[in-house]
Amino acid sequence: MRVERLSRDKIRFFLSMDDLMERGIEKEDMWQDIPKVHELFNDMMDQAYRELGFEISGPVAVEVFALPAQGMVVVVSRGRTPSRDELDDLDGDELYELEVTLEESDQVVFQFADFEDLVQAAGSSYRLIGSGGSVYAYRDHYYLVLDTEMEAETLQKGIAVLSEYGEASTYTGHVLQEYGKTIWDRDAIGEIVRYFS
């Protein structure tokens, strides 16, 4: 589980499939109000406090983005901080109230430390997943964004190959389009293979 600060009142977690499996949580469980999901959220908030000094009390907005075959991105935003009198009136179980939004992404995003890793990943995955995708440069990394409109088994195998060279990213394709530099906006894997293999 990775956590990063987005702003003073907003943080983002990336939960891999392994993080969820270790806790016995399926993606579908995130839609339910069950104890193991509450325990996961409490663990996340403990980690956010330890690593970033991020404390919550009062209203909290939680956005959960399911990433196909990769895990989940969870964005937590603090609302207004309750007054001391309001805190005194709450018992320990009511320290925060959640407003949860759930979405499923139709994209897979991988980040690569350098361009050579991206070239290797494209070459190794080309025969399996074809020539699609977009590539962006952002914050000293390269990002490959793939649509998930392919057979589930092909997608799983493609993700396994890409994982050998990079890692799943917590950024969405929309963030990369907005803030990153577009290298290839379509057919990225095919273009990389054509020029660099």
Rank of each mutant, 00 (worst) to 15 (best):
N42W: 13
E191T: 14
G79N: 03
A121E: 05
D18C: 08
S16C: 08
A69P: 14
A69R: 03
G58I: 02
Y138R: 06
H174A: 10
I192V: 10
L90F: 09
F14K: 00
E104I: 00
K157S: 03
I183G: 14
S7Y: 11
D117T: 08
S105M: 03
E104N: 01
D43S: 14
G132L: 04
D46A: 08
D93C: 04
D33P: 11
S197W: 06
D185T: 14
F41K: 04
G130T: 12
Y126K: 15
R2D: 14
D185C: 10
R23P: 15
G166C: 12
M150G: 12
L102W: 14
D29K: 04
A188S: 12
G92L: 00
G158S: 05
T81Q: 04
Y126T: 14
D85S: 06
Y143M: 09
L146A: 09
A121F: 02
M44H: 11
P68F: 06
Q111G: 06
E39Y: 13
G79T: 01
G133I: 06
N42Y: 15
V37I: 11
L95G: 03
D140W: 12
T101S: 02
V109M: 02
G133K: 07
I34R: 12
M30N: 09
Q177G: 15
Q32T: 09
P59V: 01
R8N: 04
H38D: 08
M21I: 05
R5A: 01
Q177D: 06
G173S: 11
Y138C: 05
I189D: 05
I56R: 03
S83L: 02
E153I: 08
E149R: 10
D85V: 05
A48S: 13
